[in-house]
Design a protein around this nucleic acid. Structure first.
Length: 356
DNA sequence: AAAGCAGGCAACCGCCATAAG
DNA sequence: GCTTATGGCGGTTGCCTGCTT
């Protein structure tokens, strides 16, 4: 039992909009506004369209200052970062990208970015297969206090956000706040900027309380969150991002979320001025979902007490996708070795990347 | 040249939240 | 407080176009 349709479906036109329809709608809205009632609008101007359809056409296409296509590297980075953090909340992501619509970003993600990321992921897996690093070796490294001797741990790097981003809001002030918020968000995700003071981002393993006393699995998961972000970002802006160590041993405290239930969003994002509360909440809850998903992947044995919510399965298709992107390299290395051992069942790629 | 295929994108569908009556 | 109408959103579909065989 669904709701009654918002319009008489038999008498509304569907499909692509004609230039005449566009012109009618645009002229009317520019002259009179929407009138606060999309459903009544098409009748008023003699369009045989559903009100919702009019709204969508206006928002996604006819509205002034809409940009189509030609996504910049900067925009790619922002989309990826936010998708990692908050999932498929396209309207929120779109709000961070002036001139972009949620539909555009959604399409761009589904048709381009996602494939780009999966391609990269596969490439890296192949590279790892070539080196055939064993799980045992990897675990041994993990146990060595998470730091390979002699390796300098470096936080990830995002290129400096453009000094001037397109303005859509009414004041420069709010724009600056927005930019600062975004910047904080990216830092919180594990990034640093070219103008960051080196000391401010020089968090070492020993300074990170998250790295003591946790079972191996937690470290794996945390590192995968971190590494996942970095994998995405490093290939998207390979030219501007400093080299990233790609072993599970690299540790910063940036993306190492506390999987313990006791720490909520308020704890995590304390002290960040101007960080949108809603995004904080979303980032916290969604990263936890990723953790939960990975927990399901790993099994609960390696997880810290209290980290489980009782639902280890991935609930939405979106997070199924992101989990495919999170597919841990440590497991991937293991998987490569599994494949060389006939008695062990091989990894079914379609489980993680979906049907082709 | 034509058929088949895949990718990209505009538009639709259906669900949920909320305002209005 | 309940019902209905509308707005908003994310997921999905299907058409169009360009490429390959």
């Amino acid at each position: 039992m669904g709701r009654a349709p918002c319009c008489d479906k038999a008498n509304v036109k569907k499909g692509p909009w004609s230039p005449e329809e566009d012109a009618k709608l645009k002229a009317h809205i520019e002259a009179n506004g929407t009138g606060g009632n999309w459903i009544a609008l098409p009748k008023k101007i003699g369009l045989k369209r559903c009100g919702k359809s009019c709204r969508l056409r206006w928002l996604n296409y006819l509205r002034p200052n809409i940009k189509h296509g030609g996504f910049s590297e900067e925009e790619d980075n922002i989309i990826c970062s936010l998708y990692i953090s908050i999932g498929s909340r396209w309207s929120i992501i779109a709000a961070q990208l002036p001139g972009r619509t949620d539909n555009d970003i959604k399409n761009y993600w589904n048709t381009r970015l996602k494939k780009k990321l999966v391609g990269k992921q596969r490439k890296e897996q192949q590279a790892r297969r070539a080196s055939c690093l064993t799980l045992k070796e990897e675990m041994k490294r993990e146990s060595e206090n998470y730091v390979i001797p002699g390796m300098v741990s470096q936080p990830p790097y995002w290129p400096q956000l453009p000094a001037v981003m397109p303005l859509t809001s009414t004041s420069q002030d709010s724009h600056l706040k927005e930019q600062e918020s975004l910047r904080n968000l990216l830092i919180k995700l594990g990034g640093r900027f070219s103008d960051d003071h080196p000391q401010s981002s020089a968090n070492t393993t020993s300074n990170n309380p998250m790295n003591f006393g946790y079972p191996l699995g937690v470290s794996f998961v945390q590192d995968q969150l971190y590494e996942n972000s970095m994998n995405m970002l490093s290939f998207l802006s390979a030219s501007s991002i400093s080299p990233i160590n790609s072993t599970c041993s690299q540790v910063t405290n940036s993306t190492h979320f506390n999987v313990n239930e006791a720490a909520g969003p308020n704890d995590m994002f304390q002290g960040i001025d101007g960080f949108p509360a809603e995004l904080s909440e979303l980032i916290y809850s969604n990263n936890k979902q990723i953790l939960d998903g990975l927990e399901g992947f790993y099994g609960t044995d390696n997880m810290v007490d209290g980290s489980s919510t009782g639902t280890s399965s991935v609930e939405s298709s979106s997070w199924g996708d992101i989990n495919s992107l999170c597919y841990p390299q440590i497991v991937s290395a293991f998987e490569a070795c599994q494949q060389s051992m006939p008695q062990v069942s091989t990894f079914d790629e379609s489980t993680y990347f979906g049907p082709h």
